[in-house]
């Protein structure tokens, strides 16, 4: 399935909101690696841009989401909570297969 320009714009803004929330949660934590990952997530998001189109945009949005997942994982680990697994939310994805799994 191809992403339309509306899909991409919506994904961009959803990711932007997610990263903003993560940034707030991270403010009080001493997690330098997570801060670095969050910076990379924002960088990927801004490279994608809010009104751009094409496969490159999708790739950068995907990068931003991957970095965001890593930061969420760091925050959960610090709190002693079970790891986040995207596979647990597979039914919400409109992709045939969730492309990332917790393997180890």
């Amino acid at each position: 399935m191809d992403a339309t320009s509306i899909d991409l714009r919506r994904a961009y803004h959803q990711l932007e909101r997610l990263l903003d929330k993560i940034a707030v949660a991270l403010e009080t934590e001493d997690l330098p690696a997570a801060r670095l990952d969050l910076g990379k997530a924002f960088e990927a998001l801004h490279t994608a841009g809010p009104g751009e189109e094409g496969p490159e945009v999708l790739r950068y949005l995907d990068h931003a989401l991957s970095y965001a997942h890593r930061v969420i994982g760091d925050l959960l680990h610090e709190k002693g909570l079970p790891p986040h697994s995207p596979a647990d939310f597979a039914e919400w994805y409109d992709a045939g297969e969730v492309p990332f799994r917790e393997d180890w």
Partner: peptide, 24 residues
Amino acid sequence: LIAPDHRHLGLGTAMIREIRHLGE
């Protein structure tokens, strides 16, 4: 190193997170 019966539970990833934190 992860015990065979504790793989695929997120322990390996947790250990990587831990060592990444210590490295920082």
